[in-house]
Amino acid sequence: MAKEKERKDDRPVETKTWRAMYRTMVKIRLFETLAGEYFAAGQIPGFIHLSIGQEGSSVGVCSCLRPDDYVATTHRGHGHMIAKGADVKRMAAELFGKATGYCRGKGGSMHIADFSIGILGANGVVAGGLPLIVGAGLSIKLRRTDQVAVVFFGDGAANRGPVHEAMNLASIWKLPVLFVIENNQYASTTPQSYSCAIGDLCQRAAAYNMPGYGVDGNDVLAVRETAARAVAEARAGQGPSLIENKTYRVRGHFEGDPQKYRDAAEVQRWQAENDPLRRFEDFLRRRGVLTAKKIRRIEEEVRAELDAAVAFAKESPFPRPEEALEDLFV
């Protein structure tokens, strides 16, 4: 880690971008924390999957994207939504099941989308986003634009059949697609070391004749650097890439997960030594991009924005029951 920090300290300062990335990471962390609290308090129905500890991946990748680029996300998708620029008010309202939510209360946490900023949706089916993103990539190619299409998926999804079909098809057609594995080391209760025949999932790229990058996913700038390269290649018509962001799922698979499959000490060690938000904060302070005072201000501003989002969600009405019959067909 020390060696890597040294190397990173050499990079040219991108003050504005880094500050914005930091703010987004804070926003995701706080959104997830609040979602966990309101879920525990029984105010959010159903079940939710939080991405705390994985902010480096979502923000690092999405910092390279334009509003017209596409993202397909997962059941653990709040971070990707926020990193791509989604409105936290409408997200919060959707989690609370309200009529003002992104999906008017029909989707909930696992099915949020914002097509106006290229988010093709969270997905309740593990690996469900991969075939869809290949279609988005094909659409880009047929329409001859320079957009890119990014799909996030986990180490659990990586073992599903659609991943193979999607990566092969994207490669033979040289589609502008980024396959981003967030290897958070657990597929629900099952460790990646048990479920995958190889340790480094990025090696699978070789089978599809595309570049594969293994990245410290909790180093947001390392993620950004790799994603920037893959995005540039995709925009230039050079085809897809596979990025494996190695990270860690700090919370349970779902909120309320008893987590009998791992030691609390393992979780604490990751939080203490490898928290992507803390690492980026330390780096930015060392580089003089942020001061303690500025950090405090960002935290306060984000807190105010999210408090307003929660208030909006709470005050919003539930949908009328009959609205369950709307939105099926055009």
């Binding site: 596409y70 991969l130 075939p131 869809l132 290949v134 279609g135 988005a136 094909l138 329409r143």
Partner: peptide
């Protein structure tokens, strides 16, 4: 899935 993704993105 490709059909779905393309349909969602303007085709």
């Amino acid at each position: 899935g490709c059909g779905v993704g393309a349909a969602l993105t303007g085709m």
